[in-house]
Each structure stands twice: as structure tokens, then as C-alpha cells.
Design a protein around this nucleic acid. Structure first.
Lengths: 228, 228
DNA sequence: AGACACTATTAGCTGAACCTAAACCGCCGG
DNA sequence: CCGGCGGTTTAGGTTCAGCTAATAGTGTCT
């Protein structure tokens, strides 16, 4: 009834599916076939097929036509991949001169190839960091994660000053653009204006002013400056 | 008639086959199906099948029942993998606290996953080393390699003092044993005796004496001390 | 020269992970 | 309450990379 004691190695694909499902819903809301297909750039029938196998292996709960949720075992495996991914990103930035816009793709391949030993060596070389270069929290080796409940920049009231905590984006050009605005985790910004349409907000960063659109406003997660 | 300009990515398996064939005969002598099968722990029919595909893609020259040789393109791809493998080994030993007996397995997986960029970053972090932790030469990025013509310890005449250059072994326990004898690249040893059977040689290392058997004697490649 | 022992290859099968085209389900609007 | 639309699943097919069992070729020994 329980998962095997030595959890037979998962394939790359399986690891990718589990991580994708976790990312679509860290809280455990059901994820749909087409969401998964979209994120992994696969056809829906391929996803249905894999879902079937994964539920048989006890990694997913599948209600046909309704979506899937990770089981305990599935969530554990997914968090393991998230830990790997984020630690690798942190390591590449710290020790191999990567910038935050190039690191995702490399980590995407390495996360499947690296041993547990190597991950833990990288973690200690980094001093067991709590967050990756985009500000995303790194799950601990035992599978616990602190999702900091932060607010999207789009939702910050006018007049308030906040600190950017996380930048939820992986496309290199977008990340380069964000960096060019001086926005990255740890930076303080003040919302100086808000337009009634399209979630447009105007912020000041240092001495500059920037207008931020809907998508970007949702990708930038903030906390009240000073507090957490 | 030439290889494609953008050489479509090779699969993991293909990379393994090419590297194996190169390792069976760096000089280009034909390698047999069963040698390849033995090295990769696969069945001979599987190897025949892959050989067929690889020759169609112009990476191998195959004479049925006679064996295979790498073509220019095949050799280039093989050396690329050897470079990756050896640089990764060097990096793991230098920066992540690996010892030479554990490094092979990790490199065996990483060599397929790492980008060209990352390999070159690791190479420069290491100062572009010429050899890996076992003393094996690292091919340059443009695909040239310096195979140092060294002599097996079994073939060194009695009375001569030589420096160990390379330790041709990848099994962890054997490597640990070799290390426990104080033998590693750069160490000087003197052959003090030789038995007429079984290639047994007695050597002195520092103040210790050791008897070395056939297999080990062939795995230790040496050069006249001082010279190269 | 013939037989035998290897080694290599062919034939045919499996499973993973994808695909397209076709059928199916759930719900919303008329 | 029935039709249709959109998302989901089933059906059936492909490629890669492995396997076993059967066949074929090479070379050696008598």
C-alpha cells in the first residue's frame, strides 16, 4: 500500500510532469490536462497517457475530465525537483558566473542528472541558502517549503513602499528587461500611481519612474518594506 | 556530403556509444561488437542495431563481421564527450570535494546534461587544466588531444625509477585500493624486482614496498622520472 | 575439406514517450 | 431538455533503444 522503500528512479519525463503539476498549483488545487500540456509543450493526449501511468504508480490522484492532484509521494518527488532546480540556479549564479536570465535552461537539464550527494555539496558550498536568484524559496532536503505569502506588485496600494521578494519569470529576454529596470529581489519600490484599467501601476525605483503592465505586475511579488 | 552545419543533438545513448568506441581504441583500430557490448553492458544485438544507425548517420565506418571505426565526425563527437567527462571530473574534485574514486559515476551522467557554456566556464574556473584527476589528458575544445605515450608499470625494467602519469581505472573500490598504496599521478616509484610469471613486479613507493599484479601493473602508466 | 566454436547479425518483441485523428463528456444557452 | 462547443480521453501509430532466440559468417583444428 505504501511507496517502495527504495523509490525506483523516476524518468526525466516523470520528473518534469510532477514538477509542472506542482508549479501549476503549489497549494494542491487540481491541475487540468491542458494546463499541463501547455506548460510542458506537449499534446493533451500525451499528457492523458502519462497521467494514467502516474496515477497507477500512486503519484497522482486523477478524476477523469476533472484534473489531477499530487499525492503525498508525488508532492515529495516534485519538491525534490524544485529543490534541485533552485539550488542549481543559485550555484551557477554564485560560482560559474551565470546571470539570472540564463540560469533556468541550464538548471532544467542538470536537475535530472545530478546526484543527491552533489546537490547537498552545492547547497553547503552556498551556505544552505533559503532562496534562489529569483527569490523563490528553496525546499529543504526533507521536503518542507516556506511559501512566503507575498503580494503581486499590481495589488500594492498607491503610496506604499514595498520590497520585491520574488520575480516569477523564466524567459531570458523578459528577465533581462526586468533587470534593466533595476528590479530584482531585495530592491525597494514605491507605488506612485495606478490606472483604473489594465492593472497599470507607476512605481519609483531609486530616482527612476517606471510604468508596469499587468503581466509584469503579477510576476513581481512584494512584501511591505522592512517587514516580511 | 558533409555533416550538417548545425549538428543535430545526439542522444545520450549515441554519445555513450561513440565515447566507448573511442575508448576501446583511441588510435582508430576497429572495435568489435562484443567489446562495445561488454563496455556498455548491453547485448551484442543491441550494439549491432545501434551500429547500423550510426553508420547511416556517418559517425561510424562499419564492415560487417569485422568491426567499426569512428569517422572524422564520430571521432570529433567522441572527443567532445571525453573532454566533458574529464573536465567535469576535475571540477568536482577541485570545487565540490569529490575524491577520484567517486567522481566517475557523477561525471558519467553530467557529461550528457551540461551545456557547452558551462563546460567552458568550468574549464576556466580550473585554469584550463591539461589532465584530469586520474592523469588522463583533456582534449581541447577544438578536438585535439595529446596522448602521452607512456609505459605500463608492468613493462618498466628492474632498477628504473618512474613517475606515475595516469591511473587507468574507474571502479571505486579499486581506485581506493590504489590510493591506499600511495599510488596516484605524480608519484615516483622504483621497480625493485620482477617475477618471471604473471607480470608481478615489486616496487618501492616512498619507504614502502608493494607487489603489483598484472591488471594493476597495466592500469598504471608511467614515464621515466624527470623526463616525459 | 569438413566440422565446430565463436562472434555477429537478423528477426521479432517490449516499453517509454511522444504524435494525430476520432470519439466522448460536461456544461451552457436557447 | 437538447445541441453544440471546448476540453478530455481513446484508438492507433511512430521512433528510440533495449531484449531474446534463431540464423549466418569466420576461422581454426583435425
Amino acid at each position: 500500500m505504501r511507496a517502495a522503500v527504495v523509490p525506483e528512479a523516476l524518468t526525466r519525463s516523470v520528473e518534469d510532469y510532477l514538477k509542472a503539476i506542482y508549479q501549476l498549483s503549489p497549494e494542491g488545487r487540481p491541475a487540468s490536462t491542458s494546463e499541463i500540456a501547455g506548460l510542458l509543450a506537449l499534446s493533451p493526449p500525451s499528457v492523458t497517457g502519462m497521467i494514467k501511468r502516474l496515477s497507477e504508480h500512486g503519484l497522482l490522484e486523477h478524476v477523469p475530465y476533472r484534473g489531477v492532484q499530487l499525492t503525498k509521494a508525488g508532492r515529495r518527488a516534485a519538491l525534490r525537483m524544485v529543490r534541485r532546480h533552485r539550488l542549481i540556479e543559485a550555484y551557477l549564479v554564485e560560482f560559474l558566473g551565470y546571470s539570472w536570465d540564463t540560469v533556468h535552461e541550464e538548471a532544467e537539464r542538470l536537475e535530472h542528472a545530478v546526484s543527491e550527494t552533489m546537490i547537498e555539496r552545492m547547497a553547503s558550498a552556498l551556505g544552505n541558502p533559503a532562496v534562489d536568484p529569483h527569490g523563490d524559496p528553496i525546499p529543504s532536503a526533507d521536503g518542507s517549503i516556506h511559501e512566503l505569502a507575498s503580494t503581486a506588485l499590481s495589488d500594492v496600494p498607491v503610496g506604499e513602499t514595498v520590497e520585491i521578494q520574488r520575480v516569477h519569470e523564466s524567459q531570458p529576454e523578459r528577465l533581462r528587461y526586468i533587470a534593466s529596470l533595476g528590479l530584482r529581489p531585495g530592491v525597494q519600490v514605491t507605488v506612485v500611481d495606478r490606472q483604473p484599467f489594465d492593472d497599470l501601476v507607476t512605481i519609483s525605483v531609486g530616482h527612476e519612474r517606471q510604468v508596469i503592465g499587468r503581466e509584469l505586475g503579477h510576476a513581481l511579488l512584494c512584501a511591505r518594506a522592512g517587514g516580511q
